[in-house]
């Protein structure tokens, strides 16, 4: 998947300080980053490093206290109102009173698509994530992995070019996670979307990404950005190749360096 030249996300000198009861928390410090169209970019770091907060800033769910950020050339708020991105949360968060197809239709209904188009898009995106035949089932009838796939379908349904994913597979077992990683790569190759992916798993980050952003906590900042030399075509056993292990080692080193002063 060739990475284009158009910048989807531009971040310059971004800071975010949370005012809490006892002391201000510096969640993000001096972040500079450019995400290009078609990038699959992972944010990795220990908990508290601000990776989720950063994703939420892109999504206009948190407001930065300093610096600039543009999404598709406009402010995150304008981008959000233009429905520029689909967001996948750590939990599937499907509505229990809606069927699987009903859940995928939810954003479409809000955005005012016609009934026929809602049905057509729901069917199409559910097929994309391999959930055809489950349209009429309710969330509790599906496994955790299938629920998360449904939530990805929900984020894809309205064809946003940008997909923001916050540890979407964090709560799943290793086997389902491998399976979903493979499917996600295939999906990314098929749709050519730009993906921002938060994780704390090194193999997951290396396996999926074209670029890996290593972050460190207190204050949350970027300590390394690694361009992956891995080919676009990635079978699961690429994780045993020397190139893969080399990148993984570099990520681990970065994470350790970020942590060393802490002990």
């Amino acid at each position: 998947m060739p990475v284009g030249d158009r910048a989807v996300i531009e971040v310059r000198g971004l800071n975010l300080v949370f005012q809490t009861a006892d002391a201000p928390v510096h969640a993000l410090k001096d972040i500079d980053l450019t995400v290009k169209a078609g990038d699959f970019i992972s944010f990795i770091g220990p908990s508290g490093c601000g990776k989720t907060t950063f994703l939420r800033v892109i999504a206009d769910l948190e407001q930065p206290t300093a610096g600039t950020i543009t999404v598709n050339g406009v402010s995150p708020r304008q981008a959000r109102l233009k429905r520029a991105y689909g967001y996948v949360f750590q939990a599937a968060g499907l509505y229990p009173w809606r069927s699987i197809a009903g859940n995928v239709r939810l954003p479409l209904e809000i955005m005012g698509y016609s009934r026929a188009e809602c049905d057509e898009r729901a069917a199409r995106t559910l097929e994309l994530v391999g959930l055809s035949g489950f349209e009429g089932k309710f969330p509790w009838q599906l496994s955790g992995g299938m629920q998360q796939r449904a939530s990805i379908a929900r984020a894809l349904a309205f064809d946003a070019d940008l997909l923001l994913m916050d540890e979407p597979f964090g709560a799943l077992d290793e086997i389902s996670r491998d399976h979903l990683n493979e499917q996600l790569l295939a999906l990314w190759a098929k749709t050519g979307k730009t993906v921002c992916f938060v994780t704390h798993s090194i193999p997951e980050a290396v396996y999926l990404s074209t670029r890996i952003v290593v972050m460190s906590p207190r204050p949350g900042r970027v300590i390394d950005v690694i361009d992956s030399p891995l080919p676009a075509e990635r079978p699961l056993d690429i994780r045993e190749s020397p190139e893969f292990l080399e990148i993984a080692a570099r990520v681990r080193e970065g994470l350790r360096a970020g942590h060393s002063y802490d002990d």
Binding site: D60, R80, K82, R83, G86, Y87, F89, G93, L106, I110
Partner: peptide, 20 residues
């Protein structure tokens, strides 16, 4: 999470009331 989801869709308060 469910309220944030509504926000990402740019849902109005009325829509959040009826749908969620």
């Amino acid at each position: 999470l469910q309220l944030d989801l509504m926000r990402t869709y740019g849902a109005s308060r009325r829509q959040a009331l009826w749908k969620l």
